[in-house]
Design a protein around this nucleic acid. Structure first.
Lengths: 347, 347
DNA sequence: GCACCGAAGTTTTACGTATAACGTCCTGTG
DNA sequence: CACAGGACGTTATACGTAAAACTTCGGTGC
């Protein structure tokens, strides 16, 4: 026996313009709503006959049924949705991190919603209000620990990417071996005979700067006569160009190698050198970091360090899923690779 | 008189580790859940005393209350969330469209969730399942009408960006005046004396190609002796370089102007010219499109057409909000601007 | 004195789903 | 033949919120 509202208009041609619910499917299939939920949720083995399951699926297809995610999320108390906090998507690196995270998420039937962080131009709104979605966890990329205050407090599992691994409060860290990248760059330049370095750096008060700078200086200790000067620069081509011009026209002997923390900075440095009538790499060698599309678009193509950005996103999402699952996330830094191109040559 | 569960443990120090609900706030403030909802929903003028409202707000703050979005969405049947479908975020243009859309959305307390479309590398999953959020509307950027099948069927308001305005089924269109951009580029080159053109195009079977090609040819009619050849190219620097090399080494007189549909193509064209020992702009002029960061990173800097990408996102989101509101979206194409830089010169 | 009103709440309900708990046949077995 | 137990469902409930409908109570106009 079915309840009255289930029977009395079973044959109607689905009149309502409103989107169908599982109850509508149930009516159409002549079963209860619970059965629909079981069948479509794939939990029906041994509880519903093959025939009935078929009827339900057909009815759902016929009505164009889509489960109401809000209702499901409320019922389950989980959303299978993660928040990814990145500084700015216009930076190719973060776009690739997102792509990796989104792909891995999709494979596990998870969703990703983005929050371009306060570092960007947007108003520093509450990430959670802005996400407008109930969240199961958060992944934050390349963020200073301090800027995560609001996110910390929410009690959600937090995975940090490309950030200080000493930071507590993160359930997992995924990092690139940028120290090794910097070491490779430096040794490459030392082997080419360079001794006077400038380190063009974009964020001098950050963890990542400390790592890079430390690795650069450590590698330079092999050559006792090597010197390095750090020059801060904004992270855009023309800001970097101006910073590089100042660095190159300053007092003292001219550096022969410009080690840049980002391909964008390196592109700016190349422009500065051209303006000053210097050739790359004959007069000055330049190295980048990240291996963006930009690196092979400029002339000469940049010697740089290739970062597996998509993998960072993938591992980050995998780590979050592991944490949510009660498993231990995979550890270890991701390896990076020196890519030698035309912007470096013998001193 | 309050209900039993509201009173009998009013004074407890909020023991549960679970995230607080509006009922917990109600208990703490000594009022009913409905009152909490009224106060926090800002619908309490004349229904709740100033004093009580204060108590509620304080209790909410004290408990760190955050409304459960899943419950709210279910209750309201709306989510204040839109889906933005873009080909690929690694393309700076779309990242900027997203930024504009997200900012405008945030101002109206709306959220944006992304779906990198099947054109990208990801599996061609169901956008709605992948979004994992109940949606109020969809914005699709630069998509062929055919690839939106699944989205069309959902009955959600759809705003199309940078797409064929003749396409029905979209509640609104936001377009750039790319025909005018192409006209400006062409007239600029004609004025410099160029007569032999190559049109390096990335998607020759698309609406956008038809518009660009049509505008180019229309502008060329001013010069009866002008000729143009269309050469297809993949949308990456090195694919474009190879395509341009073939175009330049083909039979017949060499073109003097390469009109490219994208700065990425233009960068590739410049590389091709350099490989062939030709100078830009002295031997061949090159123009781009989009005014990406890339345009001023390469040497020479590209003459190109600046597209207000953020504005496209803003207007798209504004149009969607208007449609959802029952208002008429603002019409009219967004103007574009020719930016003359170093990659074009007298023939 | 009483009908009426507004202020200040409260009680109740619905949103659509997933699932625990509960029938009801039907078949096989002791 | 009683009865255990599987097969196949159904009924009922909870998730947290918003808002409609209701209650209570101290004035107010007449």
């Amino acid at each position: 026996m079915t309840s009255p509202d289930d029977t009395h208009d079973a044959g109607r041609p689905a009149a309502p313009a409103t989107t169908p619910t599982s109850r509508d499917v149930a009516r159409a299939a002549g079963v209860s709503q619970a059965t629909v939920s079981l069948v479509l949720g794939d939990k029906w083995r041994g509880r519903v006959s093959e025939r009935t399951a078929g009827l339900v699926r057909e009815a759902a297809r016929g009505l164009g049924y889509r489960p109401n995610l809000a209702a499901r999320n409320l019922r389950l108390g989980r959303t299978r949705t993660a928040l990814l906090v990145v500084p700015a998507l216009t930076n190719e690196f973060f776009a690739r991190v997102y792509a990796g995270a989104a792909r891995t998420a999709a494979e596990q039937d998870f969703g990703v919603v983005l929050y371009p962080s306060p570092d960007g131009t947007g108003p520093a709104r509450d990430p959670f209000a802005s996400a407008r979605a109930a969240l199961d966890g958060v992944i934050a990329s390349s963020m200073a620990a301090g800027s995560l205050g609001a996110i910390r407090g929410a009690g959600l599992p937090l995975v940090m990417l490309d950030s200080d691994p000493a930071d507590p409060g993160a359930a997992a860290h995924v990092n690139l071996d940028i120290a090794d990248g910097m070491r490779q760059v430096t040794e490459h330049l030392l082997a080419l005979g360079h001794r006077r370095f400038v380190h063009l750096a974009s964020a001098v008060d950050s963890w990542t700067f400390d790592v890079r700078s430390g690795a650069l200086r450590a590698a330079l200790r092999r050559a006792p006569d090597a010197v390095v000067r750090t020059v801060p620069a904004p992270l855009d081509v023309h800001g970097a160009r101006r910073a590089a011009e100042l660095a190159l026209t300053g007092p003292g002997p001219r550096p022969t190698a410009l080690v840049c923390d980002d391909d964008i900075l390196a592109a700016g440095a190349c422009k500065a050198l051209r303006r000053l009538g210097l050739r790359v790499p004959e007069d000055v060698s330049v190295t980048g970091f990240d291996d963006l599309a930009l690196a092979t678009a400029v002339e000469p193509e940049l010697t740089t360090v290739r970062l597996p950005a998509e993998q960072v996103g993938e591992r980050g999402m995998a780590a979050l899923l592991a944490v949510l699952d009660g498993r231990r996330p995979e550890g270890g830094d991701l390896p990076v690779e020196l890519i030698v191109r035309g912007s470096t040559a013998r001193a």
